[in-house]
Design a protein around this nucleic acid. Sequence first.
DNA 1: CGGAAAAGTTGAACGTGTTCAAAATTAGAT
DNA 2: ATCTAATTTTGAACACGTTCAACTTTTCCG
Lengths: 223, 223
Amino acid sequence: MARKVTLKSEATRARIFEAALRVFRERGFHAATMREIAAEAGVALGAAYYYFDSKNAIVMAFYEQAQQKMLPELERTLASSRTLESRLRAIIQQKFETFAPNRALLGALSAHIDPDHPLSPFSAATAGIRDRDTAFFERAIGESGVRLPPSILPYLPRLLWLYQMGLMLFWVYDKSARQARTALLFDKTLAMMLLLIKLAGVPLLRPLYRPAGELLKAIYGEG
Amino acid sequence: MARKVTLKSEATRARIFEAALRVFRERGFHAATMREIAAEAGVALGAAYYYFDSKNAIVMAFYEQAQQKMLPELERTLASSRTLESRLRAIIQQKFETFAPNRALLGALSAHIDPDHPLSPFSAATAGIRDRDTAFFERAIGESGVRLPPSILPYLPRLLWLYQMGLMLFWVYDKSARQARTALLFDKTLAMMLLLIKLAGVPLLRPLYRPAGELLKAIYGEG
DNA sequence: CGGAAAAGTTGAACGTGTTCAAAATTAGAT
DNA sequence: ATCTAATTTTGAACACGTTCAACTTTTCCG
């Protein structure tokens, strides 16, 4: 990795990065080779590895850059809407739009379930990304007047993150025209989730929420 | 792949297969090399590829063999129990027991979400395995008197398969002593699911089941 | 400037999964 | 038994991601 932000070297890094994205888009992440990326950027193979620890690291950099780019828009969303529904809709919609030009590449970043794999959405390596994402869901809930039992509420941000991750995965591999099936999935599942949250106060569901709370504790640990 | 079942060649195939499992267990799937497997089996590198199309194919063979081994026990389970709960518990427990000696290796077979990756549980390459698995859940439901709206019932086998897959994944990566967290997860989620199915008749949930049916149709297609 | 340290750049080399043409062995027919 | 075709076995070769020692350029201090 580059130590200092020398302007020249930062330009080289950017050239390699953009060459990589270009090659990824053309050939797909797997078929793309580091040699081709280096050639496309006009540097030697070793230079690519001077700036990026690995092929995977380039995808990580891509995701982090995308996350940065989304920040202002997400802030605006939180400031300009109050209900959980409008916020969730906006946040997730924003992700779709941001990643649309590199939809397939996003697959490379989330193709792995294994929490030990660096590119897994559940890995330690992606914890930073995950936490920043989750923080927005936390804020989306925080000021929106959602009522949930205290045994469940603390887990809601992480559950929403999981929900959004599932949507993104479906989207990445959705081969329908203009990802219409994902749009349908989004609409219906969002409605169901909000309905579920609304129903939380109903006594009938109490026996379901108790084990649900214990379950979440078992999975995630204490709040 | 071997064309005919010559006894000699079948023995060689078995030697390579068992050598592979041994090396996988010792080194892990990733660290294991085809050269080491071949050496362990006492054949040249090329021989391993004569019998198995790829390193991945060995893991597939492993899963298919395990599935075969489970068959009689699963049949016995279906014959000797009637309730959905006892059947699900037995089927899933059977899987845990069968795969326990190669728990980590199972991770290699299910580490990928990408439906295009050969080893993904959602890929075309694993469709046969998936269908055979799902068939058992279908039979487990079929004769157990479960009542569900017809807009949902047809999807239940696939949903149960998904549930079981999730459990297995959690189990594979569960680092708690004797996978105690998975046991807890199994217990609680199974209870919740059965409760949910019981509640299906309650009018209050009707507004939730309607969109649920549409959702399933959107995901899986018609029945 | 001058020169040394730091930053950047190079391409050969390693170990990997996989392929393949060639060699060795076995099976089957005459 | 002999010859031919099929099956099995071999190991060199390929392209890949990655490492690294050597080389070149830039930076910085006197």
